[in-house]
Write a protein that binds this DNA or RNA. Sequence first.
DNA 1: TCACAAGTTGAACCTCGGTTCAATTCTCCT
DNA 2: AGGAGAATTGAACCGAGGTTCAACTTGTGA
Lengths: 220, 220
Amino acid sequence: MNDRLTNGAGRAQRRADARRLEILRAAARVFRRSGFAGAGMREIAAEADLSPGNLYHYFKGKHEILYFCQDRSLDVMIAALETARLSGQPASEQLRQVIEAHVRCLIDELEGSAAHLEVDALPAPLRKRIVLKRDRYERGIRRLVASGMRRGELARTDVKLVTRAILGAANWTARWFHPEGPRSASAVAEGLAEYLVRGLAARLPKKAGRGRAAGSQART
Amino acid sequence: MNDRLTNGAGRAQRRADARRLEILRAAARVFRRSGFAGAGMREIAAEADLSPGNLYHYFKGKHEILYFCQDRSLDVMIAALETARLSGQPASEQLRQVIEAHVRCLIDELEGSAAHLEVDALPAPLRKRIVLKRDRYERGIRRLVASGMRRGELARTDVKLVTRAILGAANWTARWFHPEGPRSASAVAEGLAEYLVRGLAARLPKKAGRGRAAGSQART
DNA sequence: TCACAAGTTGAACCTCGGTTCAATTCTCCT
DNA sequence: AGGAGAATTGAACCGAGGTTCAACTTGTGA
């Protein structure tokens, strides 16, 4: 009976949540296509198949939509980072997974979102929250890299600089990747990760115990 | 006499040109700070120390200012690419120079310009011209990389993908670099180039004639 | 010195895009 | 069925920012 009592209200809540999610996805697509400034509320409404005024029933305004898009993206990326961390694999493998997940998060055709690239577009209170989360993500990657360096799995270098280079290269795919292009999103993610990880593995061939490093030596 | 006849007009022309350049520099700074959308003509005018209406004496509009900023940046980068190419040094060294110049072009405190990062903001005719030039620059880098691969100086891989990764990492410095930060622009440019070039040199240690590779082996 | 062209200004204009809102429709519960 | 709240709409509102422009100032050449 209690279950039956909340069934309708529960269903309405679920529908509202689903509609919110729908809007966020649509917005993410428009933001990725046109950038935040170029994305109009009318365009987002059309993409989400509702009227412009209706957006305000679900979100306070354009900035709030952007904020939630960004929050979602960062959640996905942080989860991937955590998964990699818990895998217990070598640092280079973990880093590869993180980079691939990051790139996919950006350029996946249906779910991809470049929203988190436009933090500066947010008003200060929302921006602060996103920056905290983004910095948390970035620190996680740095820890992964630093740990790999300490273990001798990655070449020692400026952790911060390298992490930003990695993120830059990954984020930049949003600019040039086209779904109809010659490479699939996966191929791009993998190729990019391969290159970026290799830049940190450069000085490892001396370690005889390293299966891959040994393979590299045999090949070249 | 002829020299004296054109002296005043020549001087006026030079002053107009100097004023145009001043405006472009000011605009580049504002664009870098606030992005194209966030940069207002009033702000640019203030930065260039003249009135908003006066900008229109020198440029047709905001988009034309952006276009010329971008054109200038690409000129600088293309020139650096040409210098590196003509140096006849190994591909990895050439690539290093190109990357460093690219990064400096972005984050140099007085002259730096991130304008070329916002190609999409241009109306179609101007955008077409910038895209042509930008693609020319990118093809030049690709040729450099491909040539290094053919010569065995760089590891063989997907040239286009790697070039874009490099450009992405380099361009992204515009997002995170702060002049008052712990690293100078030069240190960032050098560190970044080091890492990005190493990702392409990963498989070279086998070449006994390589002084650096041999040094690396001795160290690790 | 004068006439004309170049350069400058600051207020006003105008458009575009974010947002509001009254009216209407839909959904849920009694 | 009726009432209340949620959801939706489409037109109107409003302000920010790009641009125009008449009036004025400065520079140049005869």
